[in-house]
Design a protein around this nucleic acid. Structure first.
Length: 496
RNA sequence: GGCCUCAUCGUCUAAUGGUUAGGACACAUGGUUCUCAACCAUGUAAUAGGGGUUCGAUUCCCCUUGGGGCUACCA
């Protein structure tokens, strides 16, 4: 049984790069009929943001990623835990880490150290100055090996701070076969005696992941490239415990337009910000899936179900991918076009409610939906929809010059528009639909021997009040006959 | 500084020891059209550089260069 996990730190929001990693973890688990787990890594008490987890889980739910096990939302939207391998929140597992740290202490794979922060940074400065790799100097610092047995005993008996460090073997190679990078080799000489248990009694990430991934029977550790240099430490830990390590797949990072790691300062790194901008989760998922992966065919539009069907870690590329908003925009437009209209109307609702003019107007849902149909192919995001359809409910002011087609004259408009209004008046409400309007007005234009643009342009401007808009027939249908004639009357007044 | 890692159009990427190096986004041009969008057609645009191996390399190897990551009692 394949088991993957997403292990976020609850620091506030879902980073877009993390979302991509999560997506791949999820797709891989689902593809293999496995289990996708969420575990909360809150071992850094200083960076904790209370309540962050709920928001993060909701964001994942929004994109369609729902954990099978671990930390999740119940039907009421509250954070709960489910599954047989809990607790799934690391701060609730402290005794477990303590126990395993002791096991390492006892079998000689780890040791106590007592150095202060100042001593450690002085050590690093000395090493840098001599162009040596910066790592814990076990022979010269204050620890179990350099102090006498009595001294150690006394310190441990006191309340003086102490940490537990991994005892990295002197010379040995750590080799692993990464699913995306292939064979990767590290020399133990380069690996630091990592702190496993901090002086506050909390484990570091390194101890906690290994213990938890093992205990939770994770089969595939899928995470960002930035973890690749930590992997040998983890493998050493598995070895020290005598455990079988899981398989590793290190995903390339999603980077910013400046080729740097996507940073918080440059904005737009949180999934929530894309949601707030009116991007559809389908588009975001599709776009993110194609950052570093592709099916090897020319199919570009993929639903979550299709992704699950076709996903494979072997097709993940090694190079980092730039987050390209233009492509995201394209995906969003594609989904805007194909999501059912009624569904789109529901999803767009919140943006209308945010528009200050919305409350003042009386309009029914059907009319809004019809208006959305007019503009859905013209906007990039849901957020643009209210401004785009506002003209349907409130005719913008415009100058009479706008009524003149670029190949026509003001005189022609003055002649044609009143005639057109009279003609439209003869069309019954029963006939007031797009196909018939098109047919009838088209016939009328032909019969009168006018040029199409000289009729349709002023008509469209009269109905929309805008230089650019959907076509006049569609607008007329959404407006209805009365409103259409009213707006023509307004145009005629301007022409006087 | 040390270690790790990556390298095909501007961007996301496909492909193979032998191809006119393909597609998508973006861009440009044309078509359609009352406008914009959409749509259709066409076009511009890439194997970082240098050495090998080979009949032949973009593909395999080495070096250089460049990018990125890690180098915490953060994850």
């Amino acid at each position: 049984m394949i088991r993957t996990r997403f292990a976020p730190s609850p620091t506030g929001y879902v980073h877009i790069g993390n979302l991509r990693t999560t997506l791949f973890e999820y797709l891989f688990a689902k593809k293999n009929k496995g289990v996708f787990i969420i575990r909360v890594e809150d071992t850094d008490q200083e960076r904790l943001v209370p309540g962050a987890m709920e928001g993060m889980l909701k964001t994942l739910q929004w994109v369609g990623i729902i954990p099978d096990e671990g930390v999740t939302l119940d039907s009421a939207g509250n954070v709960t835990q489910k599954g047989d391998f809990g607790p799934y929140i690391q701060s609730e597992r402290l005794p477990i880490y303590k126990k395993y740290a002791e096991e390492l202490l006892n079998n000689g794979s780890a040791y106590y150290a007592f150095d202060t922060t100042e001593e450690l940074s002085a050590m690093r400065e000395r090493q840098q100055a001599r162009k040596l790799p910066t790592k814990y100097d076990r022979e010269h610092m204050r620890n179990q090996y350099t102090l006498s047995a009595d001294e150690v005993k006394n310190i441990l008996a006191s309340d003086a701070p102490r940490v537990v460090r991994l005892k990295v073997p002197a010379s040995e190679e750590v080799v692993f076969d990464d699913i995306v990078h292939g064979k990767t080799v590290f020399d133990c000489k380069e690996i630091d005696d990592q702190v496993l248990l901090k002086s506050d009694g909390f484990p570091t990430y390194h101890l906690a992941v290994v213990v938890d991934d093992h205990l939770m029977e994770i089969t595939h550790v899928i995470r960002g490239d930035d973890w690749i240099s930590s992997t040998p430490k983890h493998l050493l830990l598995y070895k020290a415990f005598g455990w079988m390590p899981p398989l590793h797949a290190h995903l390339p990072l999603v980077i910013g337009g400046d080729k740097l790691k996507l940073s918080k300062r440059k904005g737009d790194v949180s999934t929530e910000s894309y949601r707030a901008k009116g991007y559809l989760p389908e588009a975001l998922v599709n776009f993110l899936a194609f950052l570093g992966w592709n099916p090897g065919t020319e199919k570009e539009l993929y639903s979550m179900e299709e992704l699950i069907k076709d996903f494979s870690l072997e097709k993940v590329s090694k190079a980092g991918a730039i987050f390209n908003v233009e492509k995201l925009d394209w995906y969003n437009k594609e989904y805007l076009k194909c999501i059912p209209l009624s569904e789109l109307a529901i999803r767009a609702r919140q943006w209308f409610e945010q528009a200050e003019w919305f409350e003042k107007l009386t309009m029914n849902n059907e009319q809004i939906t019809n208006a959305i149909a007019l503009e859905r192919e013209r906007v990039t995001t849901l957020a643009e929809l209210p401004a785009a359809i506002k003209f349907i409910f409130e005719l913008p002011d415009y100058s009479k010059e706008l009524l003149v087609w670029r190949k026509g004259t003001l005189e022609e408009v003055k002649k044609i528009l009143p005639e057109l209004k009279n003609y439209l008046d003869t069309i019954s409400i029963q006939e007031w639909n797009k196909a018939l309007l098109e047919q009838k007005i088209g016939g009328w234009i032909k019969q009168k021997n006018y040029s199409t643009g000289n009729v349709l342009w002023p008509l469209r401007v009269a109905l929309s009040g805008q230089q650019n808009s959907p076509g006049p027939y569609e607008i007329a249908v959404v407006l209805g006959k009365d409103d259409t004639l009213n707006r023509l009357a307004i145009a005629l007044q301007k022409l006087v």
